[in-house]
Design a protein around this nucleic acid. Structure first.
Length: 277
DNA sequence: AAACATTCCTGCACGC
DNA sequence: TGCGTGCAGGAATGTT
């Protein structure tokens, strides 16, 4: 599920519902995620107060008191839901629940991840930007540093497909497969075009398309393609507005041509053969 | 039953 | 030759 718009939607929802709460107890499944959970995870998070919820790329940062931060990445299939106590009386009762945080108002913040490619880690605020996960991430795609000059400098000399460049988290952080496809459709550029051979105007179109597509997707609370649900258990509604992703063989909404799918860097890449050059 | 929204690691080719 | 970099491919895993 989770690219930048989904994580940003999650951040906004949790900022309203979980901010200010104190974690009164924690239960874990004992299974390892991308890596094993820290041995001191539970004692370190219990009694902490949630002061603020932030986001960096696809990472959610749950800022706690005592200068601690819970870093959350949803991987491929993770979700973080805020459940009422009545709905989930017993901790870890659902399949693939891995972390259950009971809050002081009786609600639960539950991390669920069937494929376990995700990550939950507690770090001190000082080491947040220096630790491996966030270190080396490129600029935010909706921030001021992601502009034409920057993208052109990163594309220069590269022979790799432009779609792979957009998905390279060191170049720009937060764009995954769904939004890379949608951004390139909006920009009118084929995903397999070598990044280094894009013209200035095309770079400009990619920059403009990036903020348009991501901004719109956040407005619709992200995309539910298969199973993603937001913190309240609701799907993201941008799925209905996808122009190319998952639409192989269907008509392009703009020109009527049949949408194609070719594999690029091991990932499905959907595009309109007529609208994208 | 093949495909999959994620990251991470390996190995190969190339250039200085 | 040796090193760094860019790039492709595969692994991790459970669900649909």
């Amino acid at each position: 599920m989770p690219e930048l718009p989904e994580v940003e939607s999650l951040r906004r929802i949790l900022s309203r519902s979980a901010k200010g709460r104190t974690i009164v107890s924690a239960q874990i499944s004992g299974k390892s995620l991308r890596r094993p959970l820290q041995p001191d995870f539970c004692p370190r998070i219990v009694s902490r107060k949630i002061q603020r919820i932030g986001r960096r790329a696809k990472y959610l940062t749950i800022e706690l008191d005592r200068d601690e931060v819970a870093l959350v990445h949803l991987g491929m299939s993770g979700s973080l839901t805020h459940r009422s106590g009545a709905f989930s009386a017993n901790a870890l009762d659902a399949h693939h629940d891995h972390v259950d945080l009971a809050l002081d108002d009786g609600t639960h913040l539950v991390y669920n991840d069937p494929r376990r490619f995700g990550l939950i880690k507690i770090v001190s605020r000082q080491e947040l930007d220096g630790i491996g996960e966030l270190e080396g991430l490129g600029p935010e795609p909706l921030g001021p540093k992601f502009d034409c000059a920057y993208l052109a400098s990163k594309a220069r000399g590269r022979t790799a497909a432009v779609k792979n460049l957009l998905m390279d988290q060191r170049v720009v952080a937060g764009i995954g497969n769904i939004y890379a496809c949608e951004i390139l459709f909006r920009a009118g550029i084929r995903p397999e075009r070598p990044a280094g051979r894009l013209k200035g105007k095309e770079i400009e179109r990619i920059i403009a398309a990036t903020s348009a597509v991501l901004g719109e997707a956040i407005g619709w609370r992200g995309t539910t393609f298969r199973s993603y649900m937001d913190a309240r258990g609701q799907p993201g509604r941008f799925a209905e507005r996808l122009n190319v992703y998952g639409r192989e063989g269907k008509r392009c909404f703009r020109c009527g041509a049949s949408i194609r799918n070719r594999t690029l860097g091991g990932r499905a890449s959907f595009y309109c053969p007529r609208c994208q050059k």
